[in-house]
Amino acid sequence: MLAAAAQGEPDAAREALKAGADVEARDDRGRTPLILAATGDHDVVARILVDAGADPDAQDEQQDSAWLVTGVTGSVKMARVLIPAKPDYTLENRYGGTSLIPAGEHGHAEYIREVLKNTDMDVDHVNNLGWTALLEAIILGDGGEDHRKTVQYLLDGGADPKLADSNGVAPLQHAEDKGQDEIAALLRAADA
């Protein structure tokens, strides 16, 4: 089952289930088949696992779950597979973040738009560094089109443009310091 999930082989996954494979089996890093399918963006296998009752909240040794992995990969199709499984959107990764925070860092704009449209995730969740998804998109982003769209979708989803980091530095100040003029303009408009 683990190999079928990791390699994205739906027929092998179905056969493993028929043979009685454990849908919650763990590999040497504590990853379940559903986590492996999410990591590889194998949506067909993930759907098979979800239909078989796989736990979308099971976490591995690094505190990743299938849902949390989607924030890193930015996979809209995997998010759509997992949302019906009703994952715990408050579940945190090893950095104290929800899936929106790594999505902000990586500029996964379409993922953020999809998730904010179809879940009740807290758009202003603060991780262990004192950063929100909006702050991650600015601080760790490159200011390019993907991060600009990410900031726009976060703001559209209700992100607080004034919510400062743990040092009291607001998103606008970070954007200005990094020369992210278009993002700074978005933040000013949201605050108007």
Rank of each mutant, 00 (worst) to 15 (best):
60 D>T: 02
61 E>I: 13
62 Q>I: 11
63 Q>I: 11
63 Q>T: 02
64 D>N: 15
65 S>Q: 08
66 A>K: 10
66 A>H: 04
68 L>A: 09
69 V>Q: 10
69 V>W: 10
70 T>H: 03
72 V>R: 15
73 T>S: 10
74 G>N: 08
74 G>S: 00
75 S>N: 00
75 S>H: 00
82 L>C: 08
83 I>K: 07
83 I>T: 02
84 P>A: 03
86 K>W: 08
92 E>D: 02
92 E>Y: 12
94 R>C: 06
95 Y>R: 15
97 G>A: 14
98 T>M: 04
100 L>N: 02
102 P>L: 01
105 E>L: 10
105 E>W: 10
105 E>D: 11
106 H>Y: 13
107 G>A: 02
109 A>E: 01
109 A>P: 08
110 E>C: 03
110 E>G: 04
115 V>M: 12
115 V>T: 05
115 V>D: 11
116 L>C: 00
116 L>P: 05
116 L>N: 05
118 N>M: 03
119 T>W: 00
121 M>A: 15
121 M>N: 03
123 V>M: 04
123 V>S: 12
124 D>A: 06
126 V>T: 00
126 V>A: 05
127 N>P: 06
127 N>C: 09
128 N>W: 14
128 N>A: 13
129 L>H: 14
129 L>D: 14
129 L>K: 13
131 W>H: 13
133 A>V: 00
134 L>I: 07
135 L>C: 07
135 L>N: 00
135 L>G: 09
136 E>H: 15
137 A>W: 10
138 I>H: 09
138 I>T: 05
138 I>G: 02
138 I>L: 04
140 L>H: 14
142 D>G: 14
143 G>D: 12
144 G>R: 15
144 G>Y: 01
145 E>P: 13
146 D>S: 12
149 K>G: 05
149 K>R: 15
150 T>E: 06
150 T>D: 12
150 T>A: 11
150 T>P: 10
151 V>M: 09
151 V>D: 08
151 V>E: 02
154 L>P: 04
154 L>K: 08
156 D>P: 11
158 G>S: 05
159 A>W: 07
161 P>G: 04
161 P>A: 06
163 L>A: 05
163 L>M: 11
164 A>Q: 09
166 S>H: 13
166 S>A: 13
167 N>G: 11
169 V>P: 08
170 A>F: 04
170 A>K: 13
171 P>E: 04
171 P>S: 09
172 L>M: 08
173 Q>R: 14
175 A>V: 07
176 E>R: 15
177 D>E: 12
178 K>N: 12
179 G>W: 05
182 E>V: 08
184 A>E: 06
